[in-house]
């Protein structure tokens, strides 16, 4: 910044007033043009939208859009469908044994890990698609356990949202049903929240009762 050059000249702020006024607009325009990354890259790949939350024992209402390919219901093929599911956490408690599954990679709790059983009550309109459902445990420091759902489960459990003997991943005719699933955490880490999702970006948060 050049020093004072004489009282009769206009100050720097006045001479550059127009450009100073334009600057916020230019920054805003740059942010807008950059924001496609937010919409196209970050939003659909991260769990960033908390659709609802519930206290201990409460019910959270999940509502999120997904693009249906028509595998379960051909009439929905290639349309955006809003999926709505009510979730209630009945219990989260430590367990010793692991569920038996022919596709399990391990048959006992690994050293340094702990196993938790999560009991849920779900409600949805019969026929609601429940594919790619994820139930996660989140500890106080924000560590997420169980992200990825059945596709990344060493215990070989199926979809954590459908009853054990269900023929397909659709909400049963009863409209309300219970499921349970086992997740591993680091030993000594106590889960504080259950997150429930069908993939990015929407999820709901429920306090552990």
């Amino acid at each position: 910044m050049s020093a004072v050059t004489g009282g009769h000249e206009r100050g720097w702020w006045r001479r550059n007033g127009v450009w100073l006024a334009v600057l916020p607009l230019a920054i805003a325009a740059a942010a807008v043009s950059w924001s496609f990354r937010l919409v196209n890259l970050w939003w659909p790949t991260e769990l960033v939208h908390e659709a609802d939350s519930a206290g201990a024992g409460g019910t959270a209402h999940y509502a999120g859009e997904y693009y249906d390919l028509g595998f379960d219901d051909p009439s929905l093929a290639n349309t955006w469908v809003t999926r709505e599911v009510d979730v209630q956490v009945l219990a989260v408690r430590p367990v010793e044994g692991l569920p038996r599954s022919v596709t399990a990679e391990i048959d006992s709790v690994p050293d340094g890990s702990a196993a938790w059983r999560i009991d849920l009550e779900l409600a949805a309109a019969p026929g609601t698609a429940l594919g790619s459902c994820q139930v996660m445990l989140v500890s106080s420091d924000g560590t997420r356990y169980g992200e990825g759902g059945a596709t990344n489960d060493p215990l070989g459990q199926g979809n954590p949202c459908v009853p054990e003997d269900a023929p397909d991943a659709l909400a049963p005719d009863a409209g309300t049903w219970q499921t349970s699933t086992v997740l591993l955490t680091r030993a000594g880490d106590t889960p504080e929240e259950v997150w429930f999702s069908f993939g990015s970006p929407d999820y709901v948060t429920l306090a552990v009762p």
Partner: peptide
């Protein structure tokens, strides 16, 4: 592979 916080 996939790495998770719960186990090695």
């Amino acid at each position: 592979t996939t790495a998770v916080p719960a186990y090695r």
